[in-house]
Design a protein around this nucleic acid. Sequence first.
DNA 1: GTCTATAGGGTGATAGAC
DNA 2: GTCTATCACCCTATAGAC
Lengths: 217, 217
Amino acid sequence: MTNSETAEEPPAPRRPHGTAGRGGKRERLVAAARQVLYERGVEKSALADIAAAADVPLGNVYYYFKTKDALVSAVIEDYRQSFGELIAQVSQGEEPAGRLKALLAALTERQERLASYGCPIGSLSCELGKRDDDQRAEVGAILAGLIDWAETQFRAMGRDDARELATALIAAYEGIALLAAALRDPGLISTETSRLSRWIDFLAGLQPAGPGHRTGR
Amino acid sequence: MTNSETAEEPPAPRRPHGTAGRGGKRERLVAAARQVLYERGVEKSALADIAAAADVPLGNVYYYFKTKDALVSAVIEDYRQSFGELIAQVSQGEEPAGRLKALLAALTERQERLASYGCPIGSLSCELGKRDDDQRAEVGAILAGLIDWAETQFRAMGRDDARELATALIAAYEGIALLAAALRDPGLISTETSRLSRWIDFLAGLQPAGPGHRTGR
DNA sequence: GTCTATAGGGTGATAGAC
DNA sequence: GTCTATCACCCTATAGAC
């Protein structure tokens, strides 16, 4: 492993270009694409922009990705992995209610970016959702995975309506991210996540207050 | 029966092309643009598509709208008006809780289209939200108007946290529309609007559900 | 494998005939 | 006012040199 993090390129990448070759051009492209697509939208982002952001010559992109769609798919896959890690992280909490609140807390940390560009998955879904192809389904699968995870937590809390609650929770998050971006108001995120946390506590039976009440414990 | 519905054009439109001239080309363009933009997205819709849908020659579009952005702005204005009418309609209810539920019911009626293309305003906001110009603000203003209206209703219900609840309600709607479109599942809409209706009833104190709640701070 | 140059297709916008 | 023809540009994708 004689690796450097920057522009080192051993002559024999040797791996099928699915994963990590040392030049790391593929990774740089995916990372750059992820950011550019997030900030500018899929349709408005040109491959030239992404290539420039990744410091890779334009024509070289096509060595790693057959089409622009293939690059977008790689970004979606990257998100899938990131969300998997996020879920794994917040799942370390012992109690289901705590896990759900940990997820909300993780999202609150990103409120500034959420209020500028919306939820990465949500906006991707919004753009690709108009189509009816594999990519839409891939993005949908990430959201479905999130709902499934939340459902498991609510189920562990003894709720029979776990699926409904899980859907409502993820919808609330996607919706507030959309509103915060539309109104350029990061404060909406923290207000709503705070309200949702109280709601979760209420559902868990830890609080004697109804949903929406501002009472402390 | 001298009139036909199709290509009739009285020779003297006479009105400044802001409103309804009989040829109605401007109106047809806005209506067609509204539909095409909704179903295909702003960036993927070509002016040629819109012109064809409106049965107007491409070059003629520029007589009515200086740029594509101007046409998009006209569509946003059209939405603003439509939402105003929707609000006026559901505001006929006598009680605030009933009005809020009437809004939810109106949205549920559209669940099929919502599950195919998302919320018209939400997806517009999502696409334009990445920019930071006037159009984003215009779309945001529509959403803000919706929140304001809902806030008024919650306030009339005696809620001190009316603003927070109103934001949560609109976020829930936008979020569930996004999820329904992402997962192509219209059923999510009715399940969630039903849950939200129960929530509104609960907040209104019409239902004995939930543990002891207080009526405000 | 890497990169340059360019082809090929499509889009927004304009000029000018009717 | 209405519409056709066309320009000028940008973007994806490829061909082929190194």
